[in-house]
Every structure is written in C-alpha cells, then in structure tokens.
C-alpha cells in the first residue's frame, strides 16, 4: 500500500475519532446519558451494550482508535528502523498485534 493511502486513512480516522469520542463522552455525561457515575454502573453499561446502536458506535470507535494508534506506532518505529526488510518485519509484527487486540476488544461487543 502506498504511504500516502496510509496517511490519508490516518487523517480520516483522526476526524472520525474526534466525532466518536464526543458521542462516547456524551453517553457518559448528562447530555444524553444518565450522568457520569450512573452511566458507568454495571446495569447501565450492560443495558447499553445490548443496543445495536451502541454496538456499532463502540465497534467503530475501537476500530478507529486501534488503527489510528497502530499507524502512529508504525510511523514512529519507521523513523528508527530504516532498513527495507526490517520495516517489512516490523509491519508484520505490528499488524499481527493489531488484529489480536482488535479481536480481543470485539469480544465484549460480540458477547453482548
């Protein structure tokens, strides 16, 4: 994949995260949700996770944050690891860890 595509995805995910984080915060606070303390109670979270709307929001947020973060880590590592083959190896390691964490993060959403 061209470097510019990766950077473009990074930019677009940055915008998406800004929107999703606002929704996420609004859910916890009294703008939409029941307030910060009550919003974090087991019953409220459980009820929220059974809603398909929140499932989609949290799946998107998880995907956007993880992808954005791992692209960022990749960029930082690429500044120190300059060899072509070493960079390919680093990419494989990074994206393997990314997929493992993505699946792990999806488990509560799938389970609900």
């Amino acid at each position: 994949m061209k470097e510019s595509y990766i950077r473009l995805i990074q930019y677009l995910l940055g915008i998406a995260i800004a929107i999703l984080i606002l929704i996420h915060l609004a859910i916890f606070t009294s703008f939409i949700g029941p307030g910060y303390e009550l919003g974090l109670s087991w019953e409220t979270v459980s009820e929220r996770m059974s809603s398909p709307f929140y499932d989609i929001i949290y799946t998107l947020l998880l995907f956007a944050l993880l992808t954005h973060g791992f692209i960022g880590i990749r960029n930082i590592l690429f500044e120190y690891i300059t060899g072509y083959r070493a960079r390919i190896a680093v990419s494989w390691v990074i994206w393997t860890i990314y997929i493992i964490i993505l699946i792990y993060g999806m488990l509560p959403i799938i389970a609900s």
Binding site: K2, E3, S4, R7, N75, F78, E79, T82, R87
Partner: peptide, 9 residues
C-alpha cells in the same frame, strides 16, 4: 517522495 523517507517523514 511518497514514502516514510520522503515528505511523510
């Protein structure tokens, strides 16, 4: 220039 060692660096 479209590479991590190009303008994206």
């Amino acid at each position: 220039v479209d590479s991590p060692d190009g303008c994206w660096g």
